[in-house]
Design a protein around this nucleic acid. Structure first.
Lengths: 130, 130
DNA sequence: ACATCTATATGTTGCTTGCACATATGTTTA
DNA sequence: TAAACATATGTGCAAGCAACATATAGATGT
């Protein structure tokens, strides 16, 4: 998903059947990223976000389009974003997303969660490198 | 799994059907933690690790025993740890784990992956808090 | 005798992801 | 004008992973 390689491989995630190699990611990280991007730039649409999400990925990596649209639908379902169809003159219709106040609350919760996870990673690294 | 609450709730993960609230974690984080603990203290066994893994959890949280044993079996399957049965005089038999050189290599890869993920989280926080 | 602690393990279920593919419209190019 | 391409949004499926419940069994305490 968001773990990426430069050398041809798009994803770090190992395909080897039995391999447990370290291609780990942060679960559902796409959600706070989407919320933040929509907050920063209201009326973003999915195809926009596809590009802008790259900021939250390692070099050369990107999020799956399926994940983006599925998560946007999910976020709207639970009321964290709202969308309107925009019939543009050029190209197909697109959904324009805005964040709701509930979405903003959840985003602050996400930020706290992310801080906690960051601390866990820092603790691990401190203990590993000594 | 590793995200924890004090107030009765063992896990942050929300049970609400439709809720996408931020109970996120780092995927397979238990694996590098197990490797590191076994490296630090060779001949650790599962029940030991159950305790020591708490270092890598938020307050009040812990890893699931099922996850510990399943991951230990997995790590052994792929050759990152080895185990011997120890028939102790007191208590039931237990497996004593040691890390292999391949396991040590993977652990350094994990450390790099964890550093990358840490940077992603830092980037998110910087962008959110401004 | 029975409960509890230590220790290891399996089964089941649901969620998330990655990949491949489908659909639709407008624009450019041969 | 047909084909190819870029924009834009989605669906279906399989695999991986985590949470939870349950199983097994020997040792120790009362």
């Amino acid at each position: 998903m968001c773990l990426g390689g430069k050398g041809g491989k798009k994803y770090n995630k190992c395909k080897n059947e039995k391999c447990t190699c370290p291609g780990s990611r942060i679960e559902r990280f796409i959600q706070p990223c989407l919320l933040l991007l929509v907050q920063e730039k209201p009326n973003s649409h999915g195809y926009d976000l596809l590009d802008n999400l790259k900021d939250f990925c390692l070099e050369g990596a990107s999020f799956d389009t399926a994940s983006i649209y599925r998560n946007l639908r999910r976020l709207e379902e639970v009321g964290f974003v709202r969308s309107d169809w925009q019939m543009s003159k050029s190209g197909p219709a697109k959904r324009a997303y805005v964040i709701t106040s509930e979405g903003e609350n959840v985003l602050t919760m996400w930020a706290k969660n992310i801080e906690q996870n960051k601390k866990l990673l820092e603790y691990f690294l401190k203990r590993y490198y000594g």
